[in-house]
Every structure is written in C-alpha cells, then in structure tokens.
Design a protein around this nucleic acid. Sequence first.
DNA 1: TTGAAAGCGCTAACAT
DNA 2: ATGTTAGCGCTTTCAA
Lengths: 350, 350
Amino acid sequence: MAPRTARPTMKDVAVLAGVSPKTVSNVLTGAASVREETRRRVEAAMGELDFVPNLSARGLRNGRTGVIGFALPDLATAFSASITHAVVEAAHDRGLVVQLEETAAEPQREYDLVYRARTHQIDGLILNPVRLQDSVVEHVQHLPPVVLIGEVEQHRTDRVYIDSRHAGRAAAEHMISRGARRIAALGGAAANVTEKLATLGQRLQGYLEAITEAGLEPDPQLQMDVPEWSIAGGAAGMQALLERQIIFDAVVCFTDSIALGALHALHTAGLRVPQDVLVSGFDDVEHAGFTCPPLTTVRFDHNDYGTAALDLLASRVEDRSLAPRAVEIPHELVERQSTQAAPLGHDPRR
Amino acid sequence: MAPRTARPTMKDVAVLAGVSPKTVSNVLTGAASVREETRRRVEAAMGELDFVPNLSARGLRNGRTGVIGFALPDLATAFSASITHAVVEAAHDRGLVVQLEETAAEPQREYDLVYRARTHQIDGLILNPVRLQDSVVEHVQHLPPVVLIGEVEQHRTDRVYIDSRHAGRAAAEHMISRGARRIAALGGAAANVTEKLATLGQRLQGYLEAITEAGLEPDPQLQMDVPEWSIAGGAAGMQALLERQIIFDAVVCFTDSIALGALHALHTAGLRVPQDVLVSGFDDVEHAGFTCPPLTTVRFDHNDYGTAALDLLASRVEDRSLAPRAVEIPHELVERQSTQAAPLGHDPRR
DNA sequence: TTGAAAGCGCTAACAT
DNA sequence: ATGTTAGCGCTTTCAA
C-alpha cells in the first residue's frame, strides 16, 4: 500500500470518477440534480479514496460554518446541564453543532464569542447574560446573530424568556396562601438591582409585588444576595440569614441550586421543612423532585426553551434583517412537599 | 457614511498601511519580527477598518482550527456539568475552544465527531465512551487525535482515568468495615459486563473483589443494572431492589446521581440512612455534600481530570506520532454521614 | 525586514 | 446535466 499521503480532494474524486469537481460538489451537497449513474460513479470514487470534504474550505467559500456559540454564566450548575443538553440536542436535530463558552468568570468572554462570530468561526450565538449592563449586547456596534435567553429587557436581539416576574410572584403568593408572613428571598436583594432588570431582578420584583399586595411589609433584611448561584452559595445565604437572627417562615429561592443549599442549611440548623419553614426553588431541575422534602419550584420545559432559542437563531442566520422577536416559554408552579404546611416560623427569640 | 460593505480583508489593511498582505499577517500572528513603526501603521489601519481575520481562511491554509470536540454520554447529569466546566476552562486557558456533543442517544454520534475531525472542523476530540466495544475507537482505521476519559482498557489512544477498580473496592471495604454484610451495587450487573471493561465494569469488579476477600458471598440479586445514570434511574433501581424483597444493609452506587436517587427511594420507603442502610456514591459532585444525609463518595479533582485530558490532546495535535499515554488521576473516599453507622439492614421478612 | 506569487479545497456564476 | 473559470482570505514559499 502506498504511504499515507495528503487527503484526497474533490478534484481527485472528480478525476477518478471522470467528472468535474463541480459534479462532485453537486453529489455531496445535493444542490443540483445529478444523473443516477453519474452519482453512483462519484460515490464509488469517494468511497475508494476515502474522501471527506474540507469544511474549512466550504466555510471560507460559503461564509457559513454550521456552528453556533452557546454561552452560560456557570456551566457547573444543574440548570446549566439541563439547558445545555437541550440546546445540543436541538442543534443536532437541525444539523448544527454547538461551541460552548462560560462567561461568569470574566465578562470579556462574551466579547470573545462575538469576535468568533466576526472571524467566521461561528454563525451566531446564544447568550445568557447575568447583568445586561455588562453584556456585550449593550456595547457592540455590529452584533452577529444573537439570541438572548433569560429575562432581559432589551430589544436589539431576539430573545427567549419566561415571565419571571409572574413566576416570582406566584411563588410568593403560594407561600402567603399557606400562611407564611415573613418570606425571605434568596438570590438577590433589591438594593443591588439596577434599572435594566435581568433574571434576578424580575424574580425579585414579582416577589415584592406579591408581598405588597398581600398587605405585608417588604423587609430588606429578608432579601439575601447570593453571589454564586450554586448549592454552596444557597447554603451560605441561608446561614447568613440564620446568623443575623432574622425571623422568617418561608424562603423563595431564585434557583433550585440555591434552594438545595437552603434546605441543607435549614436542616443542619434543626429547622424542619415545611413544618417550620417553607422553601421554593426555580427551574425544576431533575434534582428538585428528589430532595428531602421534595421541592416546590417553578417549572418550564427546558427542551422547549433550548429549541426556541435555536429556532430563532437559525432563522436569523438565514435573514439578518428580521425584526427582533421575543418568545415566551410558559411556566407553572409545581407544588411539592417543601411548601405543604402552615409554617410555624423561625424565631430566634423563642 | 458609506453603506456597510463586505468585510475588510488583510489586503485592504495592507493597502491602507502601505505594506504587503504578508506583513499584515506577520503583525497578526507574530510569526516574523516586524519593525516597530511598520507594526504601528498596520495596527492603525486594522483599527480604522475594524478588521478581523477570517478564521475559516486561516483554517483552510493551516489545517488547524483551534477547536476541539468534547463528547459525553449524557450532558444533563451533575457529573457532566462539573467535568464540562473543567474542560471548557482548561481549553480557554490554552486558547482553545470546545465543541460539544452528546453520544448516549445514538453511538453514531461518536462517528460524527471523528468525521468532523476529518473534515477539519475540529483538531481533535475528548471522548467518554460508555461501552468500549461500541465505541468509534474500536472501529475506525485512521483516528484523529483522541483522548479517552473514563476507565477504558485500550491502548490505541491517550487516556485519562481514575483507578475505578480500586475505588469500587474501597467503597465496598468501607461498607464492610462498618459492619455491612449484604452490600448491593447500583449501576451495573456482572451479567452485563463484557470482556473489555469500561467504567462500570471496573467499579463493579472492585466491589466484587472486596466482597469476596471479606469472605462474603457475591449475590447477583444484589447487582442492579441502572440503564440511565440519572437520579430517576437510581431511584428506580432502588425501588426494584426493594420490590424484589431483597435483603441488604448497604448500597454502593456507581455515580452520585444514582446515589441521590437511591437515597430518595430509601427515604420514601421509610428506611433510614445510615441507621438501616449505608449508601455511597461516586464522583463527589457538589450536591453530594448537601444531601440528607450527606453522601459518602469517591472524590477526584474534576479540574485536574479535564486539564489532563486537554494537555494530552493538545500535545497529540502537535505531534501525532507520540506513543499513547495514560494519566491516572488520584482519588479518595470521602466519608460523610451516609455511612456513619453500623446498619441494621433492610429485611422485608422482619 | 518586506514583497510577489501561488495555492489551500471548495462552490457560485456562467457556459455548454 | 455537467464543465470551466474564478476567487473566498489567508499564509507559505521564494525573492529582493
């Protein structure tokens, strides 16, 4: 056997099949119709030479790569895993592949992705900015095709979102209906929310609306910032609440991971859920149904979420002149045991 | 302002700066040394034209993309999230970018990735095959640079692994030292393990060694296959164990997700952990420290794991003639409350 | 240190 | 239905 030489090109295939390179290209892409017998000859030649097309060359020629970028603040969370799974599957169904990035460590990373789009490494990107004012979409002149996921108030790009304000309100109202009166919010404090509200702000706003409308007093002490939306972050937030000797009988958490941490911290402190304190989460990751007790949380379909983002992006790559579109994914409150009681409350003075 | 026309190329930059395209290329890549003043002129021109290089063209020319593929069986698990995070960060540190794929749904997907390497869409790939005999590495003639992660017995490619047999043995021995005598294994059954052992088989083998060496009787009834290594899968596996009226006093689970499901199912059935049954996991995902009770599990450094895989891959992309290398990542058993007792055991006849 | 020319492998446009 | 030409934007010779 001859030594392994350079990869065969379409030209080599064409020579062997006795046709032109263009015909090989037609067979490969199905662009133009090819006579049955010609096609067979070409395919035989491709097989014989073990030919594969060079996608760099195709990308250079077409200006398209078939690759999309996908960026989340923190890839290590349960929600990230679930949504990444959804996006990769949806992309696969459409013949696209996903390039991954993580943005929380440095906001700079979002710019990297935009740059990669401009360098023709990717055709477009799906972003989940934590704070809009830091996000690239607010700072770059010519944006590539971008779909924002998350509850972001802006109208330059397509976006997929759930009505987090409504969901935050629903969670708090549910607590109130169970008899809770001192409801903490774990995940963000009003003091840190700026005008341009992102996910966090909307959930908090809904929570505040429910409190106010029920005639209860919003208390800044009950709003705990959780810098990292991880389990450890949630546990630390709850510990802080307990250490500050604050009275509360329910906790609305802004992600399930935070809620898992809160459950753990409450348990460690000897407080019972739901007998003493009610707890709710957000996202309905797989784990939420398996905590002790199982977690009441806001559910939405992660696959629909990913699919919608991908559909928007694909259509925008096709036609960049479309007006920005927004797709809302429905949500619902799933009531599990973590809120199935009238809570006695945590009162350090007792 | 002129209408937005085609992207500027290096040629445009060269003309504006009054140099040749090659000089622009030199400035950009730092390949050859460029006189300070020339460099400044070129950089000014790039800035003025808002120039970005076309990476498709560069890829075509260089035969390298700077992109690596990364494939896991199931992206939705907690372990997947953790390891994906590690790989993306390690890649970023090396100026590489990660393309993601999920392979459990159809083994075909592994071939897709290899194909993408051959089509010059990626420079190499990191794979985590579940069953080696189905894996592409056993079936393809000319492999691109590949690093296998997971406990796979083969020597065609580089690999990163932990000594799962030892770890499985350590977990079982720990149970025995606590007084357990009927130790179930959740995650795979000996009946389904073929000659070429993958992750599952090694963990099971270590477990069996510990059982045998302690003079206990290995019982196939205690070995439960869990087709999906998810929380739900673990819960279902444990339920099956309970429904079959099998006596046991400890459960070694082959992933943390399985263990979380098992904990939940035990709790639902009214069995206490660790008073009645001991439970251990594998991987030490964040959640393992926050279950009730916190989970004894096998820990290894996920960042080291991802970094090692990336280093191997990067060096192999540089030099494909290297002999296959194997890197073992150390592990340890982390003892938490889920095994802190001498278990009474679950006996349905009592 | 810089320039000129050639070509990586593919496909769009035009021609047959 | 198929062939020919040209060129996508970059970088690697080889010269100057």
